[in-house]
Nucleic acid binder design. Structure first.
Length: 465
RNA sequence: GGCGGCAUAGCCAAGUGGUAAGGCAGAGGCCUGCAAAGCCUUUAUUCCCCGGUUCGAAUCCGGGUGCCGCCUCCA
């Protein structure tokens, strides 16, 4: 089977064929760095991470670009309210963002273009749009004239006529300067509220509209026509529609072949919101003592187009699932001698995993295949027929699948200190002497210190709780 | 008002016409000095509700109910 993705443009699964065989350009809408990202944001970044890793697993060479929005209304407000410079705020939250994606094991994109580093590119694109008659000016601001782009609305299936101006209640249509409320700003003229946040350009003193950065930067780093563009479903309209309008009108070429959109995350069955008290940043969850890998697992385990529900019970379940995986690896590492090569099990697992993932990244099915593999191999280990080579084959497979998912890694934990090992030895001695009361006392004492003792035919195994 | 998504066991969640994956939790058993880990059995006669199509539907169609997203800058 070939890789298939659900393309928002066609609303169906399509076989994935890159423009240049073997190479894939991926652009993903990144964070506005004005605050710590919340776990809903990370669900989207996790999906994009999985997409990129799976494409690489399937042999594609991927170039991944993710923008950082570092100039925008909320940021300017933050500057005004805190008195800090734009750069100080964005530098701080950009660093926090990178720390967070490292915590979650999300691979770094190849390029993280920041909007403020690409003002000339944006100005350039706006000039092209102006030359081609797609813009008009009002009070120094430049707007995109939607009526010049009949294709508008194709991605989100929105009929322009049906869009009610200001329906969301967030904008007072009367105050809007655009000829039509649907038109969007390419360039915003400076006003007093912007303070020192402005650029002097050929377009006048002002700042770019939000949408233009993604068009300008994606075209710069991936070319006018590239393969995949991702984002959350909320970005579909108007942001991605606007990107398409800007890019296609400016370059005269088709823009993106596959649009992939990630559904939202709910928390404890409700939409995440501060007023409901279920709004969490990654840092909040880590502070609660949840293993970042378990957070990764939880965010990853639901198919990306499915609305997901983050619960603390699910995070606990993920913690236990990871324990099962890690314990399985420990067992494999202890295998020795000749025995079953596990070739059949490995092939079955690998094939099923790939088939599931080929089908629009069906991670749930793929994880199911791996857990079936774990059970089948555990059974053979119980039968005592697995040797070191078979175990090595199984571990190699887990490593390969870990490159895709990041959840099949061995536990990262410090080796037991000497004192603990001495206690373990003392317990073994007690057991040999049938002094089980003493042996159990030592085990209980170690448990209180966070060490689990498991007796195996080859001796005691020491693990962190 | 318009457009779209979702509703599967206690929890998370696959499956989208052929008789309910997987993980966690629970129960019983094997193993163990006892545990832990592992394995086995078990846990939804049923997939939000009501109709319809079909030999057959969780899966298709119609109508409800509920939750979620978008409709100018929120993943």
């Amino acid at each position: 089977m070939a890789v298939q993705f659900f393309n928002t443009l066609s609303r169906r699964k399509e076989q994935f064929n890159p423009i240049v065989p073997g190479q894939v350009g991926v652009y993903t809408c990144g964070p506005t760095i004005y605050n710590f990202a919340h776990i809903g944001n990370f669900r989207a970044y996790m999906f994009e991470d999985l997409l990129r890793r799976y494409l690489e697993f399937r042999g594609f060479s991927v170039k991944h670009v993710m923008n950082l929005t570092d100039v925008e209304d909320k940021l300017i407000r933050a500057c005004r309210e805190t008195g800090e410079s734009l750069k100080k705020i964005t530098d701080f939250y950009a660093q926090a963002f990178f720390e967070d994606i490292d915590t979650l094991g999300i691979q770094r994109a190849h390029v993280y273009p920041a909007a403020t580093d690409h003002i000339p590119e944006m100005v350039d694109m706006i000039k092209k749009l102006r030359e081609k008659g797609h813009t008009y000016e009002e009070n120094g601001s430049i707007y995109f004239k939607l009526s010049t782009f009949p294709e508008y609305g194709r991605l989100s299936n929105m009929q322009m006529e049906s869009l009610r101006a200001g329906a969301s209640g967030r904008v007072d249509a009367d105050e809007y300067e655009a000829e039509e409320a649907r038109d969007f700003a390419l360039w915003k003229a400076w006003d007093e509220e912007d303070g020192v946040v402005f650029w002097e350009t050929e377009l006048g003193r002002g700042r770019p509209g939000w949408h233009i950065e993604c068009s300008a930067m994606s075209v710069k780093y991936l070319g006018p026509h590239f393969d995949i563009h991702c984002g959350g479903v909320d970005n579909m309209f108007p942001h991605h529609e606007n990107e398409i309008a800007q890019a296609q009108c400016a370059t005269g070429q088709p823009f993106v072949n596959y649009w992939l959109h990630c559904a939202h995350l709910m928390v404890e069955g409700r939409k995440m919101s501060k007023s409901l008290g279920n709004f969490y940043t990654l840092r909040d969850l880590v502070e609660k003592g949840i293993d970042p890998q378990a957070i990764r697992y939880t965010l990853l385990a639901t198919h990306y187009r499915q609305p997901a529900n983050f619960t603390f019970e699910a995070a606990e379940a993920a913690t236990q699932a990871l324990r099962r995986i890690r314990d399985f690896r420990i067992r494999l590492e202890e295998m020795h001698g000749d025995g079953d090569m596990l070739e059949q099990e490995c092939r079955k697992c690998s094939d099923e995993f790939t088939d599931e993932m080929d089908d629009d990244l069906n991670i749930s099915g793929a994880l199911g295949a791996v857990f079936n593999f774990i059970r089948d191999v555990n059974k053979k280990i119980d039968e005592g027929i697995v040797g070191s080579q078979g175990a090595a084959n199984a571990l190699a497979l887990l490593d390969r699948l870990n490159h895709v998912t990041g959840v099949f890694a061995p536990a990262v934990e410090a080796a037991a200190p000497q004192e603990v090992l001495e206690q373990v030895a003392a317990r073994q001695e007690a057991r040999r002497n049938k002094d089980f009361a003493k042996a159990d006392a030592i085990r209980d004492a170690l448990a209180e210190q966070g060490w689990i003792i498991e007796d195996t035919p080859d001796g005691a195994r020491v693990k962190r709780v």
